[in-house]
Write a protein that binds this DNA or RNA. Sequence first.
DNA 1: TTATAGATTGCCT
DNA 2: GGCAATCTATAAT
Length: 215
Amino acid sequence: MLLRVLPRSFYDREPAEVARDLLGKLLVRRLETGTMLAGRIVEAEAYLGESDPAAHAYAGKTPRNAVLFGPPGHAYVYFIYGNHYCFNVSCMEEGFAGCVLLRALEPVAGIAEMTELRGVKLFSNGTGAAAPKPALMRKISSGPGRLAQALGITRALHNSTDLTSTRLSDLWIADDGCIPPQIQVTPRINVNKAVDWPLRFTVAGIGCVSGPKRL
DNA sequence: TTATAGATTGCCT
DNA sequence: GGCAATCTATAAT
């Protein structure tokens, strides 16, 4: 399989462009054990800089969101609702905030390990099989909190991680040549400000693994 | 120092 | 469809 790690220049653009172009790419995680996990990005949201009322960068630079103001291509991981991590990729050149929130993956590799990281209870439907049934696949990594848990992403481990290196990091994004057939654009999910901005991008027709249906 | 809302999820009825 | 879980950043005392 031909795999090209996305270079920093890919992220050195407007968040909406980066979000759209991340669809179809592979988010890859190398566990401490050496096991490789991978998921195809099927849903992403763009958050702009200090002009976006819904963005963390809106209030200016703080210790929490400092990564957003740094160089592009780094992970911004934050903890939300006391339970979940959300994984973002920083965009724009250094000094300018902007990021893309990954909201859903289609599991590609290491599905058994992802299932375990998410909690086997979800898939104990009698057989105890390691591989979940198709109808349950979307529960592995469909949703920002779920995908972070499925890949073992935490703030302590991954906030500010450089996503452009397979050598220095255990997390990166790669292009295997897959081109999404059709892309849908909608307003972002679960935001209270700038609710109409068309900054959510999804791969059309993925059905069981695309983002939540609530709008 | 205390209060509250939040880029969510899963379990309850 | 409703709501509890449970941490953190930020706003309000």
